[in-house]
Simulated assay, not measured.
Amino acid sequence: MKILFIGSRLYDDIDWYVKSKGIESVLTESNENAINLDLPDQVFIVPRGMDGPKQVALMQKVDAIVPLIGIDPPLIDVAHMKEEVEEEYGIPVIAADVRAVELTSNKIKTKAFYDEIGVATPKYQILTGPEDLTLDLPVVLKQGEGQGGKDIKVAKTIGDVEDYFNEFDQALCEEFIEGAEISIEVLGFDGEYVALPPIYKGETTLEGTHPLNKTKTGPCMVEGLDNNLVQHVAYKVAKNLDSDGIYEMDFMFSHKNKQLYAIEVNTRPNGTRYLTTATCGVNSLCELVNMAIGEFSLPNVYDKLEYYYSTEIPIGDYEGPAPKVPVKSFEHNDFVVHGPEGYQRVTARADSKENLEKLVDKLT
């Protein structure tokens, strides 16, 4: 079995799994100085875009293509390549299709999609200027495209709204929900979908604290919230998107009115994947490989499910004990260190809250 992987930044997360399956790995990357280029069996440096990876896939006669892309801009090109390669050459591409990417890559289209399928989302309006505002302050201002908190502002006063329009001509404006931030991964392939356990990412703040600077925990344990509801809504969203790969979904749970709100959905690997793996034993990136080799199924995922308490802590530069090899796997580790130097995080798990606290004390 030969698989083409597109993008090297996330490849070290699954290199151990690819090798354990006896898969011949081919990787394309546009940056000749990128990390992890020493791991696959073959590496091809190609221009940006999807034409280079497509040509390599055909030249190498690969059995499947797995894009490992964690940012939004290339996803639409991947989707177009998927549809072309699958239709013309019969090579499966484990990624979202054009419709799913178009609906999820623009926050305004995503809002309309939620309305269409009957999923609750915060009240919103499209502003072309501060004078259009009819929602009560505070509000959250966003651009249609962007990720990682880019171009998002919590406006507490009309002056904050005016300041935002000094930089932008339009804004997606939604009511500010005071409550819990929740993330969940959904795996989808060939019409089958499974929602993994929700992750708690902290409370919303008027300061707009970035999720990377918060301590996150799994499974989500928020008073008044049923995790089965989160999984049910996430499944409904994925089912209506009707495509393959990983879905990353963000929700808010209002403590005031006990309402779950859908915020956004992305068709790519997400930042809480380590926590999800630590909490339930299912590694979403490894499942992409299973989709490529014909080993993905709901029974197989359910058989892997485990139950742990987990947490992810921003730590800067990790100086604790070294994890066992493979260092990015929870199969032989109770913690994983990830992220670039200076911004590293530790994700740890244990079979009880007490043991998790002891492990965190040991690591930090």
Rank of each mutant, 00 (worst) to 15 (best):
Y124S: 06
E223K: 14
S297K: 00
K328A: 07
G208C: 04
V301I: 15
L206E: 13
Y274T: 10
E116A: 13
I184M: 14
K362Q: 09
F165M: 05
V336T: 10
Q42M: 07
W16L: 02
G52H: 00
Q170P: 12
F189Q: 00
C220W: 10
G320F: 03
K142L: 13
A79P: 09
D190F: 03
G202M: 01
E341T: 13
E185C: 07
P130I: 08
K54F: 10
R273W: 06
M221D: 12
G149S: 11
V43G: 08
L359K: 10
T157H: 14
L196P: 02
T279D: 00
L137M: 15
V237K: 05
C280T: 08
E145Y: 14
V337E: 07
Q231Y: 11
T311E: 12
S254L: 09
T110W: 02
E178Q: 14
N355H: 11
I76R: 06
A155M: 09
E24R: 12
G191K: 09
E162S: 14
K61L: 08
S284M: 03
A96K: 04
S25G: 01
D72W: 05
L137G: 14
D12C: 12
N290T: 13
V282H: 05
T157C: 13
S297Y: 08
R273L: 15
A79N: 04
A96H: 00
I182V: 01
F251T: 02
E162M: 12
D136V: 14
H332W: 14
L39M: 10
G271A: 03
